[in-house]
Amino acid sequence: MTLTVKMETKELSVFYKSFQAIHAVSMPMYENKVTAIIGPSGCGKSTFLRALNRMNDLVPGSRVTGEVILDGGNIYDQGKDVVEVRRRVGMVFQRPNPFPMSIYDNVAFGPRLYGLRKKALLDELVEKSLRGAALWDEVKDKLSQSGMALSGGQQQRLCIARAIAIQPEVILMDEPASALDPVATLRIEELIGTMKQWFTIVIVTHNMQQAARISDYTAFLLMNEERAGELIEFSGTEALFTRPKDKRTEDYITGRFG
């Protein structure tokens, strides 16, 4: 399988008012691979992730410089439709956030936004998405029940099903397992392993073992003297964890700080 760059940041910096949260990060995200972003708390991992589908637009006073290239086009280009960006780049959050509606409607919410109305098509898509999120067998008999009645792990998989129902190309995950118990975490990790055959996945995690288990590439971010996050090292996950090139990476992965 040839390696294709699906998404790429070029000198990406993010500011909140006068505070710089991310400083000039340039890195690729390869198609059908899992890219993990690790680093100590406050180094801007989540901010970086949120810049990849313009979720930071929602934060008043935030500003972005540099480029985020998705299939050759900058998502921050003037006149670029943020809705299109978000349809192509989906997101799963740290805390499961199912909407207050039925399981079916949760999954069908996105497709309906994009004009999918036919019952038969929606049925098919809901089933496919729930299967894709490894949740179908558990909920197929109670699709009309509230999504909020599920367990934490199931809720998170429902959110994954909801995200993949609009058939994005890239899926961003912000510590998707940090609010879950070990069993549910394992299921999410397995799921990520199967999902990468369909999607490009970028995951933020503060759990280094998790990054080592599930990702193909790993980026290590660390804040500089001005407390802005910088990219210290990016390489294949195995290489980064066994032969780190930078002293600071080595210190971090061996648990000497952070």
């Binding site: 809705v83 299109e84 898509l125």
Partner: peptide
Amino acid sequence: MQKDIFAQVDLPRVYR
């Protein structure tokens, strides 16, 4: 996951 279902929707029209 097939990527064909949205082929039935005219996405640019939806965006416009």
